[in-house]
Structures are given as C-alpha cells and as structure tokens.
C-alpha cells in the first residue's frame, strides 16, 4: 500500500513538470526547425521542416559579419562576467567581514543603483566614453559593465550564510583575510557563483541598447545587433533570423549545460534557506 502511494505521488510532479518542460522547450525547438525551413515553407505549421535546408544559415553568414559579431559578443560577455564576479566577490567580502563608517549607507546606495535602469545612465556613460575616444571600441562596451550591484547583493547574502566557525578555524590556523576568501570561502560558494556567472553572462550576451549606441560598424558590434538586422521595414526575414538566433543561443546553452549541477544546487540551497 505504501509502495502504491509513493508511486502515485511520484507521478504528480512528473505530470506537472513534463508539460512545463514541453512549453519551455517548444520555442527553442520551433526556432531550430524554422531555421531549417526553405523560404517558401517558412510559415508551415508542421513541427519539423518538410525539406530541411541550411540555406538560411548560409544566407545569414553571407549577409552579415556573423563570426566577428559572435567573437565580440563572447569577449564582451566573458570579460564583463569575470570583472563583475571579481568586483562582486571583493565588495561582498568587505561588507560581510568588516564594519566601517557608513558601511550600511554605502551598501544601501549600491542596492539603490540596482533599481536605476541602465537606459537612464546610458547617455552620460556614452558622453564619457566618447570623450575618452572609445566610441566603436570593445573596451567602452565593457567599462560601465565591470561592477554589478545585483551580483554584490547576491554574494553578500551567500557570504552572510557562510558558517563563521569555518572562517574562524582558518584564521586560527594563521590564514589572513585574503587567503580565507580565496582558499576557504570562494571554493565553498561554487554553486551561487556558478548561478551568478550564468545570469551575468546571459544578461551581457543579450545586451542590445548599449552596443547599439556605441558601435559604428558590423565588425565591431555584437550578435544581438546582427539578429536585429533581419527585422526590417520591408518585412522580417524569419529564416535567417532564426538561423542567426540559433547560433547565438548555442554558447549560452553550452555554458548552462556545463554548469547545470551547480546552478541546480544553488537554487535548491536558496530554496532551503
């Protein structure tokens, strides 16, 4: 009887999760399928391409500088993510381990900047980088994106819940703050750091307005601008649009798959807390 009940209960989550998974996967599937459809079959409602073709990929690559755009996006996303992670770890560690004058005010101010949309500060940032002569330069894309208030807040929460006994034990063994941070705390925060890395990476990878304002040519811009180039006044080119979107998704999917376990761990632990 117990076995029957357990089995019955086991089906309930699956009954909920399977339809949810299908709903989540369907748009991605439809994107890949549409990217493989020939032009005169682009509006077909069949869930697979009738006569699969790579023409849309060829056309997209011939029409715009796909590889330079993907390279620029990757450099921008990776460096921005690493910079934000580094600054967030150091800032969070400072807020968690030290009491200093106006620390709470400073923390509140950082938290408040999270509420200011980037569009509001975009023009002052733009004027600044243009005066520095950095327009149409990858460095200018990166500069205002080296610190993330969201990342600091998230890591402060994670570090606050880190067992102080472990830190004190390390300090008793003679480890300084720097050593405690990098040898004790950070290795044990792999799950939240992985989740944060993915969120930051995706956010930068999908960035549109800042590169739109800053870049001047195809070879210096990012893939999101390239995707937009297939949405035109004269009608959208769905086949190439889906092809380029599929290519743009692959790195994000790969990173998610690589860090999947840490992300799930992080969310599970966050839920338990």
């Amino acid at each position: 009887m117990t076995t029957k009940t357990a089995t019955g209960r086991g089906w309930v989550p699956h009954a909920v999760m399977i339809p949810l998974a299908i709903v989540s996967i369907f748009p991605v599937w439809w994107m890949f399928v549409t990217s493989l459809r020939p032009e005169n079959d682009i509006y077909s409602s069949l869930p697979w391409p009738g006569s699969p073709t790579l023409d849309n990929y060829t056309y997209a690559m011939d029409s715009i500088a796909v590889w330079p755009m993907l390279r620029n996006t990757a450099i921008y996303a990776v460096t921005s993510t690493l910079a934000q992670m580094l600054t967030a770890v150091l800032a969070a560690w400072a807020f968690v381990r030290w009491r200093f004058p106006l620390d709470k005010l400073l923390f509140a101010l950082i938290a408040l900047t999270w509420l200011v949309p980037f569009q509001v500060v975009m023009i002052p940032n733009y004027i600044l980088v243009s005066r520095l002569g950095l327009v149409d330069n990858l460095l200018a894309l990166l500069l205002p994106n080296m610190v993330s208030a969201f990342a600091i807040l998230l890591l402060v929460q994670s570090m606050r819940s880190f067992p102080t006994e472990v830190i004190e034990a390390a300090e008793m063994d003679g480890a300084g703050h720097w050593r405690v941070l990098w040898r004790v705390v950070v290795p044990n925060l792999r799950a939240p750091l992985a989740a944060l890395a993915i969120l930051l990476f995706i956010s930068t990878w999908n960035d549109y307005f800042w590169p739109l304002l800053l870049t001047r040519s195809e070879n210096s811009t990012v893939i999101q601008i390239g995707i937009q180039m297939f949405l035109t006044e004269e009608g959208n080119q769905w086949g190439p649009l889906m092809a380029i979107s599929s290519l743009a998704c692959l790195p994000v999917l790969a990173i998610y798959i690589a860090l999947q376990r840490q992300v799930i761990d992080s969310f599970v632990k966050a839920g338990m807390r």
Partner: peptide, 10 residues
C-alpha cells in the same frame, strides 16, 4: 537605416 538591415536595402 538601410545599412542596419541585412539584405537588399543594405
């Protein structure tokens, strides 16, 4: 803006 589109306009 034609330069910002892929295809014939560009």
């Amino acid at each position: 803006y034609n330069l910002a589109s892929a295809g014939l306009g560009r």
